[in-house]
Amino acid sequence: MSTVTSSLMRLFKVSRPISWVNTAYPFAATYIILGGKLDGLFFIGTLFFLIPYNLLMYGINDVYDYESDIRNSRKNSLEGAAETKKFHPTILWTSVITAAPFSIALILLTPIQAAAIFAALIFFVIAYSVKGLRFKEIAFLDSITSSIHFVGPMVFAVAITGFQPKAWPFALALFLWGIASHAFGAVQDVIPDRRGKLQSIATMIGARATVWLSTILYLLSVVVVAVQGGAALIIALAGLAYVANAAAYLKVTDKTSANANQGWRRFIWLNYGVGAVVTLSLIISVL
């Protein structure tokens, strides 16, 4: 295998391909549902949020989380990479170089309000991990910032298409879902994070309280969607799968927090199943 091919494969792993759809889909679906067309802006935005955005987000995270990641058994799997320090400059430069042209195009091609939202989104992507800001180590702000990473592409599409009021309940639901998901994901790392002197929502309030918070937020997200009626009821029913997945760990303790990894792995695949239901529901609502 050539050096270039090897580097590309490593960068591919860093970008968490299993999570690409979680950022591209909110933008693409929202853009089309709210009246956008299959135009240049749609394809530029969708492609950006599919690959460069994830490489930027997870690449920066992997570089600045290196010392803790090499001690985490979950890394070097579908849950993340743990690349050597020697490869870190390649990750950072490639992340910036691939994201820059898309970012410039999206800022120039969209209204000023949308461009400002996009710029803020990129800031939160960087601020989550980079040294000096490290929002991921500020309890509660860590989950809020992580959620912005996923609801942000949707809000960007809402801004491009004119801030239609009907979109906001669904944006709120996705925001609550994002906070719940990050918090639930933090539970499995309570012990290694404390050993590494890393702060998170889970290390601050404990594993059990975090799972309860996550479950409640998932349920609130479901309720927000359900009250929209129509095809949204189908999406809400599918969303109950997240509630059930988190609720299975309501009795978890800090000592048994690593067991939540099973639920986190189910969560990763739930995104595809629930995503399929969302897609069918959107098609039904349009027909």
Rank of each mutant, 00 (worst) to 15 (best):
A232D: 02
G229V: 11
T145K: 03
A186H: 00
M154S: 08
L237Q: 03
A173Q: 11
F140P: 13
F156G: 14
G132M: 11
H149D: 08
F150H: 15
Q164H: 11
Q228L: 04
F163Y: 07
F184S: 02
L198V: 12
S147D: 13
V187N: 12
I148S: 00
P165W: 05
V243A: 11
L233P: 08
H149Q: 15
Q188V: 12
G152E: 04
V227M: 11
L141P: 00
W177R: 11
A173K: 01
S221L: 09
L217V: 08
V223S: 12
A171G: 15
G178H: 13
G239R: 01
K197R: 11
S221N: 01
V158M: 14
V223E: 14
G162K: 09
F135T: 09
W168V: 14
L133C: 08
S221Q: 00
A231T: 13
Q199G: 13
G152M: 03
L176M: 06
Y249L: 06
Q228I: 00
S181K: 10
I205S: 05
A236S: 08
V227P: 09
F135R: 09
V190F: 06
I234D: 03
P153C: 12
L233S: 13
A180C: 01
F150T: 14
L220M: 14
G239F: 03
I216K: 11
I138L: 07
S181P: 15
A139K: 15
I201P: 01
V223M: 10
L233Q: 09
I205R: 05
H149C: 03
F150L: 03
Y249A: 08
Q188E: 12
S147V: 11
G162Y: 07
L250Q: 01
I235D: 12
Y249D: 10
K136D: 06
D189P: 03
I144V: 05
G178Y: 15
D189E: 01
P169Q: 01
A209Y: 14
A247P: 00
A157F: 12
K251G: 09
L141T: 14
G230Y: 11
P169N: 00
V222F: 00
I138Q: 08
I201V: 08
A238C: 11
L219M: 10
L172T: 12
L240S: 00
S214I: 04
G206C: 06
R134G: 10
A241T: 10
A232G: 05
Y242K: 13
E137Q: 08
V225D: 06
A236W: 06
A171R: 04
R134M: 14
Q199T: 10
G239Y: 07
V225I: 10
V223L: 15
G239V: 10
L174E: 15
G132T: 04
F135K: 02
F156W: 13
V187Y: 10
P165Y: 11
V224S: 14
P192C: 12
A238K: 03
F184L: 07
M154V: 01
S146R: 05
V187D: 04
A202Q: 08
V243P: 13
F163A: 06
F175M: 13
A209S: 15
V187H: 03
A246G: 09
W212V: 10
